[in-house]
Amino acid sequence: MNDRSTEQTLYRLGLAAILVVAAAAFFIKVFEIPLGGPLLACPLYSLTGLFCPGCGGTRALRLLFEGRILASVICHPFVLYGVAVFSAFMISHTLRILTRGKIKGFAYRHIYIKIAVALLILNVLVKNLAWLIWHVDLIQWASGHF
């Protein structure tokens, strides 16, 4: 698959993701589904007390939508990074389509995946070390302080 084909596929997947998220948001709002508690409990955290690479992601997304950017980044840095990269990619490719190629789309690079993996690893290390050494739950702390 060439770069243009890969980017077209990623753009279509992005559009599908937007539709799925919009539908989920609609059902959450209409049926008043709570986004916390046992529904989204992390099995690793529940069993061991240690944070997994995804712990804090849902709260980080909620905090980001509330405009609490620093708290969101502390809860899970991948969320802001993912939203920024996804938004830049989708907006630039939509503009490329609308302008018939006069505006170039945001090009996919493997480095974006490497940065994402590094953020996930850093996230789990920092959260667990803060908990094990200082007994500080950074997710709870950030949610209440910023």
Rank of each mutant, 00 (worst) to 15 (best):
R100C: 05
G105R: 06
I97S: 12
L98C: 08
F86Q: 06
K102T: 07
I121D: 00
N123F: 00
F86W: 05
G101V: 11
I115E: 13
N123M: 00
V79H: 00
K102R: 15
A107D: 14
L98Q: 02
T94W: 08
L122P: 06
V117D: 06
V83K: 03
A88G: 03
T99S: 15
F106G: 05
S87N: 01
I115D: 10
L120H: 08
F86I: 01
H110G: 15
L95F: 13
I115A: 14
G101S: 08
V85R: 11
Y108P: 06
V79I: 15
H93A: 08
A107Y: 04
Y108W: 15
V79E: 00
K104I: 03
L98M: 12
R100I: 00
A118C: 14
R96A: 14
F86K: 02
T94D: 02
V117W: 12
I111M: 05
F89G: 06
F78R: 02
I121K: 00
F89R: 11
R109D: 14
I111E: 13
Y81D: 09
S92A: 09
Y112H: 12
I115P: 13
V85C: 07
A88I: 08
L120I: 06
G101A: 04
L120Y: 12
L80W: 10
A116N: 03
A84T: 15
G105N: 05
T99P: 02
H93M: 10
G105P: 01
I115C: 13
S92P: 07
I91D: 03
R100E: 11
G105I: 06
V117Q: 09
Y108M: 11
R96Q: 13
Y108F: 15
V79Q: 01
K102I: 08
K114Q: 10
R109L: 12
T94A: 12
I121R: 04
F78T: 09
I111G: 11
F89W: 10
M90E: 10
F89P: 02
Y112N: 07
I97A: 15
K104M: 03
L80R: 00
V85I: 15
S92I: 08
A116P: 07
A107M: 04
T99M: 03
A88C: 10
H93F: 04
L80Y: 06
F89I: 11
N123D: 08
R109F: 05
R109M: 12
T94S: 13
K102P: 06
L122W: 09
T94F: 08
F86P: 01
Y112P: 00
I97L: 13
A116V: 07
L119V: 03
T99K: 09
S92M: 07
K114G: 10
I121S: 01
I113E: 07
A88N: 04
V117T: 09
V83G: 01
A116F: 15
G101I: 08
L98P: 01
I91T: 09
K114R: 12
R100T: 05
I111A: 12
H93N: 09
L120S: 08
V117H: 04
V85P: 07
R96L: 04
L80H: 01
H110L: 13
I97K: 14
L98K: 02
